[in-house]
């Protein structure tokens, strides 16, 4: 398994797996994302998109979480190419 160049989490598709590279968001959102487990190297998997295309459901640290595109754009991940 190798890692691609970092890209925004929002560009991933359902089924894709990746590792968190960096949280670009600032302020409250940054703190909240860190607390919810978006720390360097954390493994995540994109589960699906909501029926209207946003938000996104993903699995991180063993639990399910939903994020709006606004927020997933601010998270850089390295996709795992299996």
């Amino acid at each position: 398994m190798s890692h691609d160049q970092p890209k925004p989490l929002s560009s991933l598709h359902p089924g894709d797996e990746a590792e968190v590279f960096q949280v670009l968001a600032q302020g409250r959102i940054r703190q909240r994302l860190l607390e919810m487990g978006f720390i360097r190297g954390a493994h995540l998997k994109v589960e699906k998109l909501a029926p209207l295309g946003d938000p996104m459901e993903l699995v991180i640290k063993g639990y399910h979480l939903s994020l709006r595109r606004e927020e997933s754009q601010c998270i850089l991940v390295s996709e795992e190419v299996g």
């Binding site: 959102i29 909240r32 919810m36 399910h64 979480l65 939903s66 606004e70 927020e71």
Partner: peptide, 12 residues
């Protein structure tokens, strides 16, 4: 003010 983050857990 800053939008509250929509970081929502989907519990089992």
């Amino acid at each position: 003010g800053e939008n509250a983050p929509f970081v929502m857990e989907l519990p089992p």
